[in-house]
Amino acid sequence: MPVQCSSCGQNRAALKRPKTGHSLCRSCFFWAFEEEVHHTIVSGRLFSRGETVGIGASGGKDSTVLAHVLKVLNERYDYGLKLLLLSVDEGITGYRDDSLETVKRNQQQYDLPLKIVSYEELYGWTMDAIVKQVGLKNNCTFCGVFRRQALDRGAMMLNVDKICTGHNADDVAETVLMNVLRGDIARLRRCTAISTASDGEGAIPRCKPLKYAYEKEIVLYAYFKKLDYFSTECIYSPNAYRGHARTFLKDLEAVRPSAIMDVIHSGENLSVREGVKMPVQGTCSRCGYISSQALGLPKLGIGKHHRLHGKILAQQPLTQEEERKLKAVDF
C-alpha cells in the first residue's frame, strides 16, 4: 500500500517528515527542504549581497548537504555570494585524511574553491602527536580550541566575511540539553543563536543555516541526492557526555518527533534573571585571540588547574603539587 505524496498527490511518498508529519515524494521533499533553509537564511539575515562565505567542510553529511544547498540557493535566489569550502586538517590518520579526500571530490563536484588549513602548519602539532602526549582523556579539549581558531585563520587568509557551519537541529538541541545538564548558563544562552555577533573584534561571524533542519532529513537529502559524503566517527572521540544527550534526545524523538524543535524553542526563549554572574569573554594576554581566560590555556575536563592562572600571570612560584597539576598542558 504505497502512500501518495501529500503535496503533489502524484508520486509515491519517499519519507515522512519528522517536523510536520507530512508524507512527501522525493522532489517535493527536496523543494521543501531547500525552501526552509532559504527561509532560515532570509529571516535570520545571515548573508548580504557580495559577501564571501566560507563553508566549514568536513566531508561529513551535514557540511556536504550545506555546501550543496547553499550553492543551489545562491543560484536560485541570486544571493550574490562568493562561496568557498574551508577545511581543517587536524592530523588524524585514518579519519581526517580520508574525509579530506571527500572534501576534495566535493570541490570538483560543486566547483567551489577549497582551502585546507592544518593544525600542523598553524600550531606545529597534529592531533596524532597530541594524543601521543596527553592520551585519550582530554584530547578533544585541544582539538576544540585549535579548530575554533583554525577556521578563523583559514577564513582570514581568504578574506572571508562569514563562516557557516553544518550544525543541524539535532546538534543544537543536544547542546541545549548538555548546557542545562552542566549548568553552563553562559553557553546555554549563546548556543541557540543562529549567528554570532559580527561586532567582535578579530573573530569572523559564524552562522548555522541548517539550524532548523532535522538530522533525518539531512541524511535522506544526501542519500536521495546521492551526495558524496564520508561517514566515520572521529577515532579519538568517544564523547560520552554528548552521546548520552544524543541517545536521550533520539529516544524522545522516537516518541514525539517535535521534541527536537521543542528543545530548541525552549533554549531560544529562556531568559536569564538579572544579576546572574556571567563569565566575561576576554582575550588571551599572550596572542590577543578571544579566550575565556586571560592566558589562553585550554581548560581541561579534570582538575581545577585554571585557578592557578592568576599565579601564572603574576609569575609567582608554584608549589610542586601545582606544577604537577599543570603537567598535562606543559608540553
Binding site: A13, A14, L15, S23, K216, F224, T247, K250
Partner: peptide, 16 residues
Amino acid sequence: VRPGILVLINDADWEL
C-alpha cells in the same frame, strides 16, 4: 532499530 537509525524499504522511509 535503535532510534536514529533510518530504515528504507525500496527507497522509501519505513515509517510510511
